[in-house]
Structures are given as structure tokens and as C-alpha cells.
């Protein structure tokens, strides 16, 4: 176990600027592909109280399975508070140093290295988008948003499952689901988010439709239901909300 050091804000900024302004994109890609981990000078680093077993985590991270990777990252950093989880320096450091091999494998640089580096190794765009794009922070946030929801919200007790990560697996297995939840305002609400995933799970088991299509259509219904009926929905029990949306979908071509 080692105490993690994270880069300073100024280093985070200069890394981003260097990537943005690097003239030769091919060379930039080579620098990232060939590197075995960025070496930061001591002056660029700040010590933290976070302890991580880097070797153990690296042995379990699986570039082919976002759900496996999400669970290992979330489990390893379960006690991270939300303020620290919103600290871009932590995730940038992990991407460039400790978990670099995973990031390289999961997000190959291919034809648009600059754009991939900016969004996957660093942070790009508004926070809501950026934290679900960065290669490591997205794994932690996926776990945080979906793990054991019945422990956080008593009205979700009826969804209790032996698998604490049931909803993490559902969400991380379908890129469109991930997008639909994190890009929409209602996705921030624990009850609506879990109701959405549960409804998706029930319908996808009973109907032969593509997961991407189903997620897209269901998210439209949730948006429609939740925008106008903010108070009605606040009073609706989660189970009733799931059944209500399920019923609505039966009238549509889903």
C-alpha cells in the first residue's frame, strides 16, 4: 500500500496546455504510447492520505470490462469523499502514472490522439460530462452512482439484491445507458436513476430490442414524465414509477 501523491493544479494546467498546443499530433501520440508512466517532479506533487494497493488494482483492471474495472476502482476508493472525487488532479495523476497501462489499453489513441488524451487522460468540457469521460474517474463515479442504492434510500429497499453492484453492471455494460443517465438532469436523482435502470432491466429481459435503442427511448419517457410532474413524481413511490413507465412503454413501439 502506498500513500498517493497527486499533482498540483499548476501541473494539471500545464499538462492540458501542452497537449492542446503540441504541434505534431503523431509525436504527441507516441509520447503517450511509449511512456511507461509519467514521471512527475517532487515539486509538482502534493501528498495525500489516500492509500492504494496499486499492484493489486492493476492486476484486476480489465480494459475489456467496464463493470469489472468500475467495481475494483470503486471498492479501492470507497471512502473517497465527494469533494475529493471531484478533484481533477487525483484522476489525472492516476491516469498518467499508476494506471497508465490500463488507460492505454482501454482507450487506444488511434486517429484522434489529442481529443482522446484531453477527454480520457485529462478533463474536457463541463464537469458533468468530463468526470464520466476521464478513464479512471468515470469508473469511480459509475460505482458511486449505482452501488447498493437500497442502503442509501429506504424507498428503494424493495430492489435489494444479493449483488451490491447489480446496477453498476447494468449501467456500465451499455454505453448509451451511461450517457443517458449522466447527461440528463434527472440522472442526478438517486431514485430516478435507479428506477430508470430497473425499468431498463425489466424491459430488456422481456422484449427483444437493442439495448442502445431501449435506453434512448426510455430516457425520453423519463424526461417527459419528470419534467412536467415534478411534484407528482416526488410523491410517487419508486415501485409505482417503474410500473408507470413500464406501462407507458407498452403503448409505444418498444
Amino acid at each position: 500500500m502506498e500513500n498517493l501523491k497527486v499533482i498540483r493544479t499548476s501541473k494539471q494546467e500545464s499538462l492540458t496546455r501542452e497537449v492542446e498546443l503540441f504541434k505534431d499530433e503523431k509525436q504527441l501520440a507516441q509520447n503517450y504510447i511509449n511512456s511507461e508512466g509519467f514521471i512527475f517532479e517532487e515539486a509538482d506533487l502534493i501528498p495525500t492520505n489516500l492509500k492504494l494497493d496499486i499492484e493489486e488494482i492493476n492486476s484486476k483492471l480489465n480494459p475489456k470490462s467496464d463493470s469489472e474495472s468500475s467495481i475494483i476502482i470503486y471498492e479501492s476508493l470507497k471512502n473517497l469523499n465527494l469533494i475529493n472525487a471531484s478533484d481533477k488532479r487525483l484522476w489525472t495523476t492516476l491516469c498518467h502514472k499508476q494506471f497508465m497501462n490500463y488507460v492505454q489499453d482501454r482507450w487506444p489513441l488511434k486517429d484522434t490522439p489529442r481529443s482522446i488524451i484531453l477527454s480520457r487522460w485529462l478533463f474536457n468540457g463541463t464537469d458533468r460530462t468530463a468526470f464520466t469521460r476521464n478513464a479512471i474517474s468515470r469508473l469511480w463515479w459509475a460505482g458511486h452512482l449505482t452501488a447498493e442504492p437500497w442502503k442509501k434510500e429506504p424507498s428503494l429497499e424493495f430492489l435489494k439484491n444479493d449483488d451490491p453492484y447489480k446496477y453498476t453492471r447494468i449501467m456500465t455494460d451499455v454505453a448509451q445507458l451511461w450517457f443517458d443517465i449522466t447527461e440528463r438532469e434527472w440522472g442526478g436523482n438517486l431514485i430516478y436513476r435507479i428506477c430508470f435502470l430497473e425499468t431498463f432491466d425489466r424491459i430488456s429481459k422481456s422484449k427483444n430490442v437493442s439495448a442502445t435503442f431501449l435506453s434512448r427511448e426510455l430516457s425520453k419517457i423519463f424526461t417527459g414524465v419528470l419534467v412536467a410532474d415534478v411534484v407528482l413524481v416526488a410523491h410517487k413511490e419508486p415501485q409505482a414509477l417503474i410500473e408507470y413507465v413500464e406501462e407507458l412503454t407498452s403503448y409505444l413501439e418498444i
Binding site: 465527494l82 458533468r128 438532469e185 434527472w186 415534478v230 411534484v231
Partner: peptide, 8 residues
């Protein structure tokens, strides 16, 4: 939005 949180 930064903490993916909303509540009524």
C-alpha cells in the same frame, strides 16, 4: 451537476 446530485 458536478456531483451528479439532484433532489426534491
Amino acid at each position: 451537476p458536478s456531483s451528479y446530485f439532484s433532489k426534491i
